[in-house]
Design a protein around this nucleic acid. Structure first.
Lengths: 239, 239
DNA sequence: ACAAAAGTGTTCGTACTACACCCATGC
DNA sequence: GCATGGGTGTAGTACGAACACTTTTGT
């Protein structure tokens, strides 16, 4: 199907990148993994891990690769947010970036600077400023998307260790929604969904009554999903 | 901020397009505007209206332009869906497409073929097959997105004429969700939202009791929105 | 008078809200 | 024994689900 391609050459002069908003939940706080760039443009600025997509590389694969370069993790929860392509957002020419967000368990890996990063660190979502390119906007849009998605799909578990307490889970929702939730109602609601497996174990060595540990019951989720299930949490007051 | 750009040249060889899933509501049915292409690749195939984004043109602006070329409309409701960029999806080289969907009122314009279209027509969402490129997938994803978005924002009104009946509105929701809704509950719910202005007029010349006409009260919506309002409709049985 | 869609009210069950106290552990 | 968070029950309310009949118009 080779066609008179000549006249289209003028269009084949753009580049595209992926940028990844990597969320982690650490110490009751929702965090984002940022890198400090060692490459122009925006040399020395903090920004999202991301890079040019290679020839023949799928977009999702590129996002996974970028994530692997920073965290060493593979097969991580990852979702496309949208494309950002304002003209002039990149000094080198027309560069569209495809933004992704991923959810990782912070205890699964050690940070190590690599690629265009001279430094890698977790930053609180709430105090992010003067990032490279339009990365602040990307972070905002991704965060907004996460808030929404977690309402209708149980993706929050991706951010927690395999065994967690109900309070951990509640704090996670509170951090993402920036709300305070009511303990008893939260627990009733979550448990009534039957998505948690009681592991029969408890916390050890805490100076109070130890909490039971749970894990996410993926099999159970798939059952419910097929049946047109809709995960949703409502109540909550503004913080 | 000119930088050692040389080594990046290899990345600046891609093109990107916008493709627009234009939804319209006609005669109780949800439809999509498709064009029949008169240009390679996929000459003669039906596909989404779309084209290469111009140098210096913003993505949203490109999507508006494409829409204007087919419908003549400007300032239409438009939302980015996501980017599609599987390698090999386009014969001419690496082409990423940014998919949009728009909501239009079908009675606002006449169709006229233009640009790469030899023919333009409305197609029922339910019988769409063998489109150009990966456009079938794009349609599915856009449709899915519309179903979701209309739950939490009153964008449905974009598809209806300025004055409509409650039954029109109900049929619209039924078409989008592929559900049957219960008349009394639907009306109660919609009216209790206070988003409709009773126009004090009625249908004319129908062979039954004429229905009252309503319009969407945009001012009222903005008030509610600021106050953290959440538009939502739930009930419904699978068709 | 008949056909066709508009319009409306009530009952029932469920699910969200709000709220206060006892329990298990470490120090 | 005290401090710390874990864990639970209940009453009130609001909202969604289900359901059938009367009204207004054109022909």
């Amino acid at each position: 199907m080779a066609q008179p391609q000549k006249s289209f050459d003028a269009y084949f002069k753009s580049a595209f990148t992926v940028d990844n908003v990597i969320f982690g939940f650490d110490n009751g706080q929702l965090k984002i993994l940022l890198i400090r760039r060692n490459e122009a443009p925006f040399d020395n600025y903090w920004g999202l891990p991301g890079y040019f997509v290679r020839e023949g590389e799928d977009l999702d694969a590129a996002a996974q690769r970028v994530l692997r370069e920073v965290t060493g993790l593979k097969d991580v929860y990852l979702e496309q947010v949208k494309a950002f392509g304002t003209p002039g957002r990149h000094d080198f020419g027309r560069v569209i970036t495809i933004a992704y967000y991923s959810l990782v368990k912070v205890e699964d890996f050690e940070l190590h600077a690599a690629g265009v990063a001279q430094e890698v660190a977790w930053h609180s979502v709430s105090d992010i400023e003067s990032l490279a390119f339009d990365h602040e906007e990307i972070v905002q849009v991704a965060f907004h998307r996460l808030k929404r998605s977690i309402r209708s799909r149980p993706i929050g578990f991706e951010l927690l260790p395999p065994a967690f307490t109900l309070t951990d889970l509640q704090h996670l929702y509170e951090a993402i929604w920036e709300l305070d939730l009511e303990k008893r109602n939260f627990r009733k609601k979550i448990l009534s969904m039957n998505l948690l497996k009681d592991l029969g174990r408890s916390q050890k060595g805490v100076a109070h009554r130890p909490a039971k540990l749970y894990s996410f019951d993926e099999g159970r989720y798939r059952e419910l999903e097929e049946d047109g299930f809709n995960f949703e949490l409502k109540e909550g007051k503004r913080k």
